[in-house]
Design a protein around this nucleic acid. Structure first.
Lengths: 221, 221
DNA sequence: CTGTTGCATTTTGTATACAACATGCCAAAG
DNA sequence: CTTTGGCATGTTGTATACAAAATGCAACAG
């Protein structure tokens, strides 16, 4: 018997509900601060309240919801300071990720990253924002994977998820966009030459710029 | 007013259950790898299965449990690599914490830390391991608080919680203990002189030594 | 003796009923 | 007119009943 167990996602109603809720939050269907009515949501998602409440607990642990005693759950509303703090931590984690990646990256990885970079630049040239973001994130994820530290990856993912709830994927000033693309190319160069210090430096600047861009899209305190 | 003003915190049964389970896991009552029977545990904790399952979700999010579909929850068993990875991330976060703290620390903070350091050295001199660990942790928490980044604090706490499940609080080689105490004194000195680079350096060494100490207490792969 | 099949039992997963609490409204007192 | 008390209503919190899946065991075929 080989170990090929089918990925039949048979079960996991709470996970499925959590996934669905995540989408609703990230897409703004459930706005920051919105209170979540259990009965209404359970009907909308087609599950009963029990698995839905377990989904709430998961999202609360991710920092996407806050749960008030006897008053239910509501979508978290990040302040500008929250965003600054999150980016401070993310910058530190990205630095670590980059440093580890320079130690472990293979030539095959570099080739793959360069291909993704090309794809991203194509999206940039075509002003295709959704695809740009998709590939952008894929590159960051790939570097994270190369770093080879699952706990780092998970910690990072959790932080990222919070920020995605901000839906800052809308506006992007052309000059900043150009700069970001250039920084990405530099990042991969630094990786290719195994220059950890330079990579750290680029990442720090990259994140600082991204923070500014995000803050500019925020009208709420 | 009746006299029975119990802390009516009748609420938050899931939180209470989670807290209790955390203790049971950290104290080894529930060993790594142990499967948790819902009915048995719910009777033991005096709550029904519904809030207990929500507690499971919370602990799973913290990384203390893993939940397998249709097969319940079990206490996570960390591998040596998991521990290495966790320490890698923790070192990065501690560095950030130290750097931020040097920027924001006040003289009053320094005085308080020195008092705690004295308390810790007293515990060291008295070979009082439990108190040593308590004050040790309090110092780290204090520095974290001085850093003034709640998201950093929370991320750090989550990671720490996983490691506490290892119960490495038992053995400690005298030489290592002496060294750790000295490093703590150096840390506070570096903070007092606002020497971020030196603090980073000390923290990196401190964490590396701690990792070694923890790994030595592990017999499981 | 080994391995498979089917059944009985146990355990997890989900829905729902009921209890505790919060909220909004209206009436009545000041 | 404002404030307060109490009731009606809705919402969350917990327990439990029921369904589905896994597990263990024994009988049986090879």
């Amino acid at each position: 018997m080989d170990g090929s167990h089918f990925p039949i996602a048979r079960q996991a109603l709470p996970e499925a509900a959590a996934e669905r809720l995540r989408s609703l939050i990230i897409e703004g269907e459930l706005a920051p601060g919105a209170r979540l009515n259990e009965r209404e949501l359970s009907e909308r998602l087609g599950v009963s309240r029990t698995p839905l409440r377990e989904a709430f607990r998961m999202l609360a642990a991710d920092g996407l919801l806050v749960q008030l005693p006897n008053r239910g759950a509501q979508v978290v509303a990040l302040s500008r300071d929250d965003v600054r703090h999150a980016f401070e931590v993310m910058a530190s984690l990205e630095s670590l990720s980059g440093e580890l990646a320079t130690q472990r990256v293979t030539d095959a990885d570099i080739a793959q990253l360069r291909a993704m970079q090309a794809e991203m630049e194509a999206a940039h040239a075509a002003h295709d924002l959704p695809n740009y973001y998709r590939v952008n994130r894929a590159i960051h994820d790939r570097i994270n994977a190369i770093a080879g530290n699952p706990i780092l990856t998970q910690t990072f993912r959790t932080l990222n998820m919070r920020l995605h709830a901000l839906r800052f994927r809308s506006n992007l000033v052309p000059a900043k966009w150009d700069q970001a693309v250039g920084e990405h190319r530099d990042m991969i160069d630094a990786l290719a030459t195994r220059d950890g210090a330079r990579l750290r430096d680029i990442l720090a600047r990259h994140l600082k710029a991204k923070l500014q861009a995000v803050l500019e899209t925020m009208d709420t305190p």
